[in-house]
Design a protein around this nucleic acid. Structure first.
Length: 825
RNA sequence: GCCGAAGUGGCGGAACUGGCAGACGCGCGCGACUCAAACUCGCGUUCCCUUACGGGAUUGUGGGUUCAAUUCCCACCUUCGGCACCA
């Protein structure tokens, strides 16, 4: 007889599980041994596992752990499966927070950044990751940004970088311009500091992302989440339609884009954006004062005020007229701020009967509303009776030669008509804008361009790169680029004519640095190019990229654009940089709010590591939520994970006693091999929470088997061996320590992933579910291979069933082999 | 307004292909150990009725398909994310 008491009495003294002792010990040894070095091996299949690199803000946040440690476990799993896995790390080291912190504390941004990097390296090591540190890349390092600049020059030479004067978004707090993607929300605030942006007219550098708009919409060769595909597709905003040219009485042609060319006969007026360049020419002298007044008013308003959708539409008549190219009628030209200069041509043909905005405008200013589309499922539309516009497709009416064209043909017919007439053509428009990359700040890669009064904008010759960032600079933000205020830095000579010239003083958006960091990891010290082609050919593309969804329309569009542009320039190969992408969710504070210092709900990973050890923190982060969703932190939850690791510890080290029977042994092996099958599947699918619960379940079974005397048996040794290998990716330290304690050959991390023995995993007996009218009435233990007839017979013979049958014949009996019998009365 | 995701016990979540809803863990309750507490271990824990046996309800709501629905279909509600006068 065995009871808790006798177990206690026979207990041998085993060392306590002390992560503070074993974790640094193994981290050191792995480092010394170069255990995680990833080198080209043509005989082994490669796996490039990449996690979005952190900004060196000072401390690793629990969010970094949540992003990195499950990804690390996944990479370790792949490695045990036999892949040659590269898991690199680096730092997105340029950027504003360094300058802001430097201003506050009066230390140099470089010093601040590199001090933080040192600290974060230490923290990343304490996590027990399999990072190959030889491949680390730091974007603020001249040997890195030399190539960022080199890429800029390449883009410029191939016509993909250009500068122009334009109204751009300016963050008055960050004192710099922002890309369209970095302006968020209804109030158009800065993505970083949440200050509402304003417009400034500046000469700025852009990358021609719009050239790749169509290709960026294709996702068929990559395994990316639907959500990211949708976000990018919406962001790019492709609209198919037509460009139509209207003559004006003032002489100039007016081009508009429309997605509804089939409504052209209903275009009864035109509207220009107030900033439209033709406004001056079109406006008649009598109307000039009114128009000028309206433009002044529009310019005084912020974008937010102007673009508020609930605002009543306003506008003024210019006095000018255009000619509708299909009706040859004179139609008035208005200006109104509901037409945006930034989309299409900044001018529209207004079809009030079939566009709600135009309808509201027409009603307010008493302009003609002419019905030209009649949907089949609606009564005849009478313009005077309309309460709203009818934007639906339908048969063309009042449309000259095309009257009667059915709705499904209208689009093609009108395009053919316009193209034949020469007044319009099929066209496509995008919401996507070119990427504004100029930043008026110090801590970034200088744009390698020279402005020569004679030759214009000339790229710095490649052999002169990098253009180093000077250290002796006043980096206080004044709204001007700090580099502009440096006494000597900007003065140079023109590489083309040799005359005096000036350097570009803006620096690059840091998203440019992070568009190619995955390439620098390949060979961070390579001096003959941005990367070693040998490394590229072996490792690229990235096999699994993980990171937050917040970059869907920023980094993840930029890096795809960058890759495609470089492919066309001949630098990279293949169409996409990252073959698969997965997003993790966010860890919220215990109050279910986003963690922030001001809320005081920040969880410090360092303190958790001190209290529980890295293995417990890693495991808890993998266990406590669905990885792709995230969840609020729960402080007591981690105690359960710690308890589990301690139980693993004593299960392995504490000997048992007795002799187990065959059923126990068979049951043990069954659970072990079933767990192998489950964990292999779950790791593959990044379902980290169930890998942990699977191991917890197996532990519970093993402890029971041990109590029944399984300890010391062959099956027990096999179970322990497999358990430690399954645990290794999740909790690398404790598994290594226990592996060593059992005298197994170093290292558990170079072992192969266990193969399931399907036969051992198979169930011999199953619980047959017996339902009556779909309700559970009985469970019967039967042999796994039971025939349908036998299952039916057993179910009908069940006492509990006969009670419900009450002598009647069932109408129907459904047998699902191996699962259940449903008796329908 | 448009696009997308998600709604399962007190909480985080599980359920591979339509087949036992609630695995695993937290929390909680009872018990063992202890002078006591912590740790640890054992048992219980969706809700309602019932002393019990047992029964009923239940995966946001309402319908539908099916022998059978957390899973498929339709409508709606809530929450979150994105976009927003995009012609």
């Amino acid at each position: 007889m065995k009871c808790a008491g006798s177990e206690t009495m026979s207990k041998k003294e085993i060392p306590a599980y002390n992560p503070a002792e074993i974790e640094p010990k193994w981290q050191q040894k792995w480092e010394t041994d170069g255990l995680y070095h990833a080198d080209i091996d043509p005989n082994q299949e490669k796996f490039y596992a990449l996690t979005m690199l952190p900004y060196p803000s000072g401390d690793l946040h629990i969010g970094h752990w949540y992003a990195i440690s499950p990804s690390d476990a996944r990479a370790r799993f792949k490695r045990m499966q036999g892949y040659n896995v590269m898991f690199p790390m680096g730092f997105d080291a340029f950027g504003l927070p360094a300058e802001n912190a430097a201003i506050k504390r009066n230390i140099h941004p470089k010093q601040w950044t590199y001090k933080n990097i040192d600290n974060m390296r230490k923290q990343l090591r304490s996590m027990g990751t399999m990072i190959d540190w030889r491949r680390e890349a730091v974007s603020a390092d001249p040997k890195y940004y030399k190539w960022t600049q080199w890429f800029f020059v390449k883009l410029f030479k191939h016509g993909l970088a250009y500068h122009k004067m334009s109204p751009v978004d300016w963050c008055p707090n960050c004192n710099t311009t922002l890309a369209r993607e970095q302006v968020w929300g209804e109030d158009r605030h800065c993505e970083r500091c949440e200050t509402p942006v304003i417009k400034k007219n500046l000469d700025q550098w852009f990358f021609r992302t719009t050239k790749y708009a169509d290709e960026l919409l294709k996702f068929d060769t990559i395994d990316w989440p639907e959500q990211v595909q949708t976000l990018q597709t919406n962001w790019i905003g492709r609209s198919e339609g037509a460009s139509v040219t209207f003559r004006t009485e003032a002489g100039d042609d007016l081009k508009v884009f429309t997605t509804r060319p089939d409504t052209l006969w209903g275009a009864t007026f035109m509207v220009l954006a107030p900033e439209h360049p033709l406004v001056k020419k079109i406006t008649t002298p009598e109307q000039w004062n009114t128009v000028q007044g309206y433009i002044d008013e529009a310019l005084r308003q912020t974008d937010i005020q102007r673009e508020a959708t609930d605002k009543e539409k306003t506008g003024v008549f210019t006095g000018g007229y255009a000619i509708n190219p299909v009706t040859d009628e004179r139609i008035p030209i208005w200006i109104a701020d509901y037409v945006l200069m930034t989309y299409g041509t900044g001018a529209i043909m207004a079809v009030p009967a079939h566009d709600q905005r135009d309808f509201e405008f027409a009603r307010k200013y008493d302009l003609e509303i002419r019905v030209v589309i009649q949907p089949d499922d609606k009564d005849e539309i009478v313009s005077g009776d309309m309460a709203t516009a009818i934007p639906a497709k339908g048969r063309m009416v009042n449309s000259g030669a095309l009257t009667g064209t059915p709705g499904d043909q209208a689009f093609e017919q009108i395009i053919a008509y316009l193209e034949k007439k020469g007044t319009g053509y099929r066209d496509v428009n995008y919401r996507l804008r070119d990427w504004l990359i100029s930043r008026q700040r110090y801590w970034g890669a200088p744009i390698p361009m020279i402005h020569c009064p004679k030759c214009g904008a000339v790229p710095v010759p490649e052999e002169q790169l990098p253009i180093l960032l000077p250290d002796d600079v006043e980096w206080k933000p004044t709204g001007e680029s700090p580099l502009k205020l440096h006494p000597t830095w900007r003065k140079t000579t023109c590489p083309e004519c040799g005359g005096p010239a000036e350097r570009e003083t803006d620096t690059m958006d840091t998203f440019m640095c992070s568009s190619w960091y995955h390439l620098r990891y390949l060979s961070p010290d390579y001096a003959d190019g941005p990367f070693d082609p040998k490394e590229y050919d072996y490792w690229m593309p990235v096999d699994l990229y993980t990171g937050g969804i917040e970059h869907a329309t920023m980094h993840l569009i930029y890096t795809r654009f960058f890759h495609k542009a470089m492919r066309d320039i001949g630098v990279t190969k293949g169409d996409e940089p990252m073959a698969a992408l997965r997003n993790q969710g966010m860890v919220l504070g215990e109050d279910s709010e986003k963690m922030s210092k001001s809320r005081g709900n920040v969880i410090s990973p360092d303190k958790l590591v001190q209290a529980y050890g890295a293995d417990a923190v890693r495991a808890y982060l993998m266990f406590f939520a669905r990885w792709e969703l995230g969840a609020p932190w729960n402080s007591s939850g981690i105690d359960g994970t710690m308890r589990w690791l301690r139980r693993v510890w004593s299960m392995v080290l504490q000997p048992g006693q007795g002799q187990a029977d065959q059923d126990t042994i068979r049951g043990l092996r069954r659970k072990v091999h079933q767990t192998v099958i489950q964990l292999t599947r779950d790791f593959e699918n990044l379902q980290f929470n169930t890998t942990i619960s699977g191991l917890m379940e197996l532990l519970n079974e093993m402890v029971k088997a041990k109590q029944k005397g399984a300890w010391g048996s062959e099956a027990w040794d096999e179970a322990i061996d497999i358990y430690l290998r399954l645990l290794a990716p999740i909790a690398p330290h404790i598994s290594e320590e226990l592996w060593a304690a059992l005298g197994k050959p170093y290292s558990v991390h170079t072992q192969t992933w266990p193969e399931a023995d399907e036969e051992a995993a198979a169930e011999e007996e199953i619980t047959l579910i017996v339902q009556v009218n779909g309700k559970l009435r009985d469970r019967i233990i039967v042999p796994a291979g039971i025939s349908q007839e036998d299952a039916k017979a057993k179910a009908l013979a069940s006492d509990k069933v006969t009670r419900y049958l009450a002598g009647k014949e069932p109408r129907k009996v459904v047998v699902v082999p191996g699962r259940l019998v449903n008796i329908v009365l």
